[in-house]
């Protein structure tokens, strides 16, 4: 079995294990909804996680893809984690939950077929992917900070404009 076959064969199983591991970071009581309901609008959290899982796995497995495609697929998921409670490490560390799963399922097979280098390359791709996610995370937090400022500015936009014209008038008098 070559390495891409390996990854393909275990895709569903590993995706399942990873999404379960992600759901495990949420309170137990809410897991039922996340894992079972497939409505992308009724259960957006679960839908985001599944979308990210697939993109992540395919990218790690070495499928042809671009940075932009991966980023778009991860975006919703990372953005959600970026505004949920918890530290940034907690928000992004979920991607590394894939490593122990891969090491358990795929590493022995790869080692047996002498594809260790290939396996290590896959893990490196996971590292790159986490870095990409870090970019998205930071951009999201920046947007958040910006929104705070923008909102205050917008709220008083006309008052400020009025005050400015008023000062001008006062000067002219």
């Amino acid at each position: 079995m070559n390495i891409s076959e390996c990854f393909r064969n275990y895709r569903e199983e590993i995706l399942y294990l990873w999404t379960e591991a992600v759901y495990a970071t949420y309170p137990f009581e809410t897991k039922g909804l996340l894992g079972t309901v497939i409505d992308p609008f009724g259960n957006p959290g679960g839908d985001m996680t599944r979308e990210a899982a697939q993109a992540m796995y395919d990218a790690v497995a070495g499928d042809e893809t671009t940075v932009e495609t991966v980023k778009t697929a991860l975006e919703r998921f990372v953005k959600l984690r970026a505004v949920q409670k918890g530290t940034p490490s907690r928000a992004l560390g979920v991607f590394y939950l894939l490593k122990p799963i891969m090491r358990e399922r795929l590493l022995p097979l790869c080692a047996a077929s002498g594809e260790l280098n290939g396996y290590l390359a896959a893990e490196s791709r996971l590292d790159s992917l986490t870095l990409l996610a870090f970019d998205i995370h930071m951009a999201a937090r920046e947007t958040l900070a910006e929104s705070r400022i923008m909102e205050i500015r917008d709220r008083y936009a006309q008052v400020e404009r009025w005050a400015q014209t008023h000062t001008r008038k006062a000067h002219l008098l």
Binding site: A21, A24, T25, Y26, F28, R90, Y96, K99
Partner: peptide, 14 residues
Amino acid sequence: PAPQDLLASRPPFQ
């Protein structure tokens, strides 16, 4: 700790 240990898991059910 390894990343997975950093992600303190949720408390067990109830």
